[in-house]
Design a binder for these strands. Structure first.
Lengths: 337, 337
DNA sequence: GTGAAAGCGCTAACAA
DNA sequence: TTGTTAGCGCTTTCAC
């Protein structure tokens, strides 16, 4: 990489002249500016990012910590973050906590050494079950702002972007009830995280309001989802509706239904929290609750960057919690229009 | 963040003393070392990463450019890269080219300003169709090593990690033939990228060797995969085998087969390039060609880091192409054991 | 055993 | 209009 020094030497001017010329300073004469720029162009000069970061005490880099990169929703949020960040000239350093508290702590500490200007994260499962939040508080008090999305800790004072998990599950359940279903089961592989619990509560509320009895199937990490759903259908042959809290269960519920001579959506309706591309995996396609993952990511990035750029009175600014509303996208796994 | 300067001031010693003490230099007296370390501990001192990078002219950061973060295989490779990189004390900056040549170029240029020590990437679709490779060559000649994985450019001299696409598709096709299938169709949504072409060739070779006629269904980006597969089944009712080049088509082929009263695997066998978790989306589960994505990522990271650390005679070192062999993982969508 | 000083690449206040 | 200098945080050589 060419440096200012080398350009200066070759042009026989001082380093600061070169620097100013390249930054279009009015101080520098037309003629010199032109010469400098030409040489810089020729050598494909690019200001050294590291030096700039050191000088300006900011890196234009965001640390993103996500629990699981193989989760479609989370990847999509990451996508949204990356795009929005890029738009504002920020890069992202990605760490994967792998649902582990320890790794999450490490990542936070490792990047809190000047590598990034702030964090965007979704909390690891272990962190949620152990209810640990001190590492977040420490980071924030070191002056590094955090924006949490999806799985958030309400006791940490920071910006947040969340989904209306409770309401959307409530109304999805209601819509199945409106179809005339009265044996609706709730299937969840994400029982242990906050959003999973919220969704279950939304389902419960809707069911109880109708005087029906909740029926919940929790699938654990190492369970065989197909087996579990098969057993469910075997045990309750009256099931006529499924609300799936995760992206796979809904698809599997549809595909498995045929083994029990249940026609979808004639005999049973299915709605899942999933994405368009996964909803394609079942025949008929799954009706989904879309979470607008990209938008969540973009919003999180926007909030963080706003905060980073309002250097002045960061302290006084109140923290925001933005709710990104879900959308029910109807496919052929449900009856209602 | 506390700096050496602040520690030095408080301890009433010089900055260099503090630095040396923290680095366990033998030059510094036992007593002083202890005092320094205690204060550093107290203030939770961490050496500023940016300053270190500037001083040592390396960032311990790897730039990763992937075409599509929503592709399960690519995300999984990213996971492998991240884990291996972390193990060696490296962080990763992720850029998503979104299959665009322009974005790929930009990312490369943007990070080639001292932000990273080298790159790991898989080539964007547009880059492959336009057969552009100069941006890679430029980056390498600037002294930033590149490791390519999966979709590689053979004309660029750099380390590569690839899958045995041709051979594995060839032998998967052969295995269906061995089951007695003689109307095997090849379905691909990744026609335009190098690996897609290799897989198709592997299929063709196996089919032609048996004197059968290849039958290929190409699905374009905006096509409805379910519709396409439905039409296929309608048009060729003799189909008794499917080789799917991408992760979704195999799953859909299975789930759609039932609409045509085809029993899987009695009447039709299906094999797809996919992952364990997606293979679960079909009933019965899809037999897959596993690509060991995490291993590919880990290997790529290993190759890059090796090269970065052999500072001495990088030039003389020959470039490696590592082939990570796939594994056929049998489920209930095929007959053979 | 400890400290002063240079230098990594850059910007910017100040001097000329 | 151009140059000198200091300084961002750190390591390291060399002097004391």
């Amino acid at each position: 990489m060419v440096t200012l020094k080398q350009l200066a030497k070759e042009l026989e001017v001082s380093i600061s002249t070169v620097s100013k010329a390249l930054n279009n300073s009015e101080e520098i004469g037309e003629e010199t500016r032109k010469r400098v720029k030409e040489l810089a162009e020729l050598y494909n000069y690019k200001p050294n990012k590291v030096a700039l970061s050191l000088k300006q005490n900011k890196t234009k880099t965001i640390g993103v910590i996500i629990p699981d990169i193989l989760n479609y929703f989370l990847s999509k949020v990451l996508f949204g973050i990356e795009r929005e960040a890029n738009k504002h000239g920020y890069n992202i350093i990605t760490c994967i906590s792998n649902e582990s508290l320890e790794k999450e702590k490490q990542s936070l500490e490792l990047l809190a050494n000047g590598s990034v200007d702030g964090f965007i994260l979704s909390i690891a499962e272990e962190t949620q079950t152990k209810n640990e939040i001190n590492h977040f508080k420490d980071t924030i008090s070191q002056g590094l702002p955090i924006v949490m999305f999806d799985r958030v800790a309400h006791d940490v004072r920071c910006d947040k972007v969340i989904v209306d998990d409770f309401e959307s599950t409530y109304s999805a359940t209601k819509s199945l009830i409106a179809e005339g279903r009265n044996n609706i089961v709730f299937i969840s592989k994400i029982d242990s995280i906050s959003v999973g619990k919220l969704r279950e509560r939304g389902y419960n509320k809707a069911i109880l309001e109708e005087g029906q009895t909740p029926n919940v199937l929790i699938i654990k990490k190492n369970d065989d989802t197909q087996q579990k759903i098969k057993q469910l259908y075997k045990k309750y042959d009256k099931i006529d509706g499924v609300i799936a809290a995760d992206s796979a269960s809904g698809v599997i519920a549809i595909n498995m239904a045929r083994n029990f001579k249940k026609k979808v959506p004639k005999d049973i309706s299915v709605i899942g929290f999933s994405s368009k591309s996964v909803s394609n995996h079942s025949v008929p396609k799954l009706t989904i609750i879309r979470q607008h993952a990209k938008k969540i990511g973009a919003k999180a990035a926007e909030l963080l960057i706003d905060r980073l750029q309002n250097t002045s009175e960061t302290i006084t600014t109140e923290y925001t919690t933005k709710i990104v509303k879900t959308t029910l996208v109807k496919s052929k796994s449900t009856l209602l229009q």
